[in-house]
Computed example of a mutant assay.
Amino acid sequence: MLTIVWQIGVVIAFSWIGEGIVSLTHVPIPGSIIGMILLFFGLQLGWIKLNWVEAGAALLLSEMMVFFIPSVVGFMQYSWMFGIKGLVILFIVVSGTALMMMATGVISERLLERQGGEARRWYPKYFL
C-alpha cells in the first residue's frame, strides 16, 4: 500500500513540476499536461523506471470516474446548458467520441497489419 502511495506521489510531483514550469514561462498549456509529458520522456529516456509509477498510475486510471464527480456537480450550476445548447454540446461530444474510436480502431488495425498480424476489418478497404 505504501508503495502505491509513493508511486502516486511521483505522478503528482511531475504534475506540480509542470505547474511550476507554466507559472514561470506562462506557456498556454495546462501544467498537468506538461508534467505528464515530462514523465513520459523520463520513462522513455530511462531516468525513471516503470516500476516506480506503474501500480500508482494503474490505480489512478482505474478510479478515474471519481475525479469527474466534482466537474459534473459543478455543471449543474449552468442550467442553460440543458436546453438547445446542451443538445449541441451533447452532439459534439458524442460525434467527437465516435470519430476518435473509429480513428483508434483504424490505426490499431494498420499497426497490427504492419507487424504481420491479421486484422479483422469492419470497414471496406477503400474507406482509407
Rank of each mutant, 00 (worst) to 15 (best):
Q44G: 04
G35C: 02
M76N: 12
W122R: 15
L2P: 04
E118A: 13
M81V: 15
V22I: 13
V106Y: 09
P124S: 15
I8R: 01
V5F: 13
W122Y: 12
F41K: 00
G20N: 02
T3F: 05
G20R: 02
S95N: 10
V10K: 03
P124M: 12
W16S: 06
L39H: 00
I107S: 06
W6Q: 08
W47G: 00
W16G: 04
A57S: 07
M36I: 05
E19Q: 14
R114H: 06
S71P: 09
F75A: 14
Q7T: 02
W52T: 07
P124L: 12
G105S: 08
Y123K: 05
M100W: 15
E63P: 06
V106I: 09
W122V: 09
A58V: 12
Q44F: 04
W16F: 11
S79R: 15
L43N: 02
K85P: 07
I84H: 10
G46N: 03
F67Y: 12
G42W: 00
F127T: 11
G31Y: 01
L61K: 09
L43A: 01
L39Q: 01
K49V: 02
H26K: 14
G20K: 01
A119V: 05
W47E: 02
L38T: 00
F68K: 12
M102H: 10
V73Q: 15
V93G: 09
F41P: 00
S62E: 12
F67I: 12
R114N: 08
I21N: 03
A98Y: 13
G116R: 02
P70V: 10
